[in-house]
Design a protein around this nucleic acid. Structure first.
Lengths: 187, 187
DNA sequence: AGGTTCATGTAACCCGTTACATGATTTC
DNA sequence: GAAATCATGTAACGGGTTACATGAACCT
């Protein structure tokens, strides 16, 4: 089933690396730059319950002697499928305008769950959409800039720069995948 | 009387430029790169009602002959005060980690509602916090990079680049305010 | 006269935030 | 034996999304 929050996908992605408990996941969000996700129990435990209810993960309580009881979650095959579907769906213009965070999350787990071919395809699609969006921002700045206050203009300029940076990143990332592919083929 | 969503502040900021209707505001969100806000009526009209209930804006129905009836909103003095307080509060580390969008929104309306002095102060504070955050991301990449998949590493690299771009932007924006101040003084 | 745009709203649903609660285990 | 940390949860609240509803004015 569709209808999962970003947090749900982040959890699914992390659980695909290895089985983890809710507490493990909270620590990851608290101690790593991974997304901007909340490490609060009120977000994570309900999200795990929803994933389980939808059949995307299953869990088992571990009571290793001497250790605290932990409920370990792992994705089901249906969960893996749903994740990959979400991850590899084509990039549309609106993703670049309104959902850059989601795009980066999708890419973060690309190697592990979809492979290098999908990673390269993703980067190409992203580069295309970003390259298409930047001129429209420039155009807006050119047309509307005069009647905007300085700080507004500068804020827009900041947005443009950040998309330019993103575009540059996709290109350098693509080069890395290309190099890797060549080396792999040579071996 | 705190507790306002980002959308609430965006609306307050726009209403400070000139009185507008809900429909005006929707069009702005639909047709400008302003934030990533929703232009859906289900978001905007309730948000305006909340602002009015909290005394931050007031509204009046206009029935100019021959025109459609429009409800025009404008900020109250208490609304202006609340906006400026939010806008000029000191920048903390967590803002840079979790709330860059909010920071840019605060800055967008800086000239109009707080003035150039506050704008420069804001940029200095932002530069300081961003400059402090970047090394910790680099450190994380250095320590954890080896055990991360390529796509994860690249995603993190993208985040670092975007903070570097933001830092560069704050500096160039600061130069602009400095220049402007000098020119103003010379006059 | 009929379709489009203007303009304002409401209701169900989902989910994140904040705060609270509970108990076990480790640490000093 | 007290405090901190581990570990899992729940409940109230706020607010955004989606979808639906309504009617007036404008266009052809």
């Amino acid at each position: 089933m569709q209808n999962d929050s970003l947090l749900g996908y982040a959890l699914l992605g992390l659980l695909q690396q290895e089985p983890r408990s809710g507490y493990d996941l909270r620590k990851i969000f608290a101690n790593s730059p991974m997304g901007t996700f909340s490490d609060s129990p009120g977000a994570i435990y309900p999200a795990l319950q929803r994933l389980e209810k939808r059949g995307l993960v299953r869990s088992r309580v571990h009571e290793s002697s001497g250790l605290r009881r932990r409920r370990l979650f792992r994705p089901t095959s249906s969960g893996k499928r749903a994740f990959k579907t979400w991850q590899t769906k084509p990039i549309i213009a609106n993703d670049v305008i309104h959902r850059v965070d989601e795009l980066m999350l999708r890419f973060s787990f690309m190697d592990e769950s979809a492979g290098a071919v999908h990673a390269a395809r993703f980067l190409k699609g992203l580069a295309k959409e970003v390259a298409a969006y930047i001129p429209s921002l420039r155009q807006f700045l050119k047309v509307q800039g005069a009647r905007m206050p300085l700080s507004g203009r500068l804020a827009l300029e900041s947005g443009i720069r950040s998309y330019e940076t993103l575009l540059g990143w996709t290109k350098s990332a693509l080069r890395i995948y290309a190099r890797r592919k060549k080396r792999g083929a040579r071996k």
